[in-house]
Design a protein around this nucleic acid. Structure first.
Length: 172
DNA sequence: TCAACCTGGTAGG
DNA sequence: CCTACCAGGTTGA
């Protein structure tokens, strides 16, 4: 099990049919999830001790990610450590988490749901800053009229995740 | 203070 | 359908 602790977080890899994801954990939970990158893993050869808590988080995250990538409900998620986000961002992320698989919302709907009806574009910003894509389903947030909108992880991923959940878009 | 952003709505062709 | 334009909240430099 190849792990490293660069910034105080424990970094572990998750191998999926879609490539190698990188997960980072604090002792409070999953703090970040990165899409597979082309720039090779460059994994360190050292193996810092992985706490039992983090091992549990990792097992849950791995299962949840694989199910989500298959377009299915994730099952039990690990605890999430989103403490790095601002209050506004955390409110947005919390709201995203209660969009069920297979459903979508618009940026405007999220803005209203958190009580900031005009902060539409700011919601987009918070989605882009989401440290845990896929499990915090920022891909289920579309622009008005079911148009795709953007995706910092690459619009291709957004399209892929949506179509696996059977969510239809307009304008392609 | 300022520019950037995963928006939304309106106006016009 | 498309382009142009601007109001807009929040963030990070």
């Amino acid at each position: 099990m190849n792990s490293s602790a660069t910034d105080g977080l424990t970094q572990l890899l998750i191998e999926t049919a879609d490539g190698l994801f990188t997960a980072r954990y604090s002792e409070r939970g999953l703090a970040a999830l990165d899409f597979p990158r082309r720039s090779a893993a460059g994994s360190s050869k050292t193996k810092p001790a992985v706490s039992p808590a983090v091992q549990t988080f990792h097992r849950l995250a791995t299962n949840a990610l694989k199910r989500s990538l298959a377009g299915r409900p994730p099952g039990q998620l690990p605890p999430l450590d989103l403490s790095a986000g601002t209050d506004f961002q955390q409110r947005v992320w919390r709201e995203l988490r209660n969009i069920p698989a297979g459903q979508s919302r618009s940026y405007g709907q999220i803005a209203q749901a958190i009580g900031r009806p005009k902060a539409v574009r700011a919601v987009g910003g918070a989605c882009g800053a989401n440290p845990v894509p896929v499990l915090v389903p920022c891909h289920r947030v579309l622009a008005a009229n079911q148009k795709p909108g953007g995706f910092s992880g690459g619009i291709v991923w957004k399209k892929k995740l949506l179509e696996r959940e059977g969510i239809e878009l307009t304008g392609w």
